[in-house]
Simulated scan of single mutants.
Amino acid sequence: MSQKSPIQAVAFDLDGIMFNTEHVFFLSGDALLQRRGKKMTPDILRGMMGRRAHEGFEHLSSFLDQPEDPLALWEESQEIFRSLLDQHLKPMKGLFELLDYLEELEIPKGVATSSPRPYLDSLLSRFDIIHRFPVSLTAEDVTHGKPHPEIYLTAAEKMGVTPDKMLVLEDSETGTRSGVAAGTYVVSIPHEFSNYGDFSSANFIADSLIDDHILSLLAEGRR
Rank of each mutant, 00 (worst) to 15 (best):
F204K: 07
E220M: 12
D128Q: 13
L95D: 06
T176S: 10
A156P: 01
K109Q: 14
G221Y: 09
G160M: 08
E106A: 15
M1G: 13
Y185L: 15
V24Y: 03
I44T: 04
T174S: 02
D69M: 05
I80H: 03
F81K: 11
M18F: 08
I210T: 15
P42M: 10
E157T: 11
N195R: 12
V142F: 01
I80P: 01
S115Y: 03
F133N: 15
K4N: 08
I130F: 00
L85A: 08
S5R: 09
K165F: 08
H23V: 09
D198Q: 03
T21C: 06
L99I: 15
G145V: 01
N203V: 09
V186F: 06
A9Y: 04
S172N: 02
D30Y: 04
D86G: 14
Q66L: 03
E75N: 15
V161M: 05
A139T: 09
E104H: 11
M48I: 10
L218T: 12
L124V: 00
S62W: 04
R222N: 06
A206F: 10
D65R: 07
H23I: 11
T162Y: 05
Q34K: 13
E97V: 12
K158E: 04
G47W: 06
D128L: 08
T162R: 09
K4R: 10
Y152M: 02
P108C: 09
M40V: 06
V168P: 03
F25G: 13
S77Q: 11
V10M: 11
F25M: 10
S5M: 10
D141T: 01
H131N: 15
F12D: 13
D212Q: 14
I189Q: 01
A206K: 11
G50I: 03
I205T: 13
E55G: 04
S136E: 07
E79S: 06
H148C: 12
A202M: 07
S125A: 13
L218A: 14
V24Q: 04
Y185K: 11
D30K: 06
I129R: 08
H148K: 13
R223F: 02
G183W: 00
L137G: 11
N20M: 05
A181H: 00
D141H: 06
L209T: 14
I44Y: 03
G110R: 08
G47F: 07
S208K: 05
L99Q: 14
L71H: 10
L137I: 14
P108M: 07
L167G: 05
P190W: 03
K4D: 12
T154V: 04
L169R: 07
I107K: 07
I205P: 00
H131K: 11
E55Q: 09
A31R: 01
D171N: 10
L217Q: 02
R126M: 14
L71G: 04
F12S: 08
F63Y: 15
P190V: 00
Q78N: 15
V186H: 02
S5H: 13
E104Q: 12
D171Y: 09
P67W: 03
A53Y: 01
Q78T: 10
L120M: 15
G160A: 07
F193Y: 14
H213S: 12
K165V: 06
G197T: 01
D13E: 01
F25V: 03
D100F: 10
L33N: 01
P118R: 04
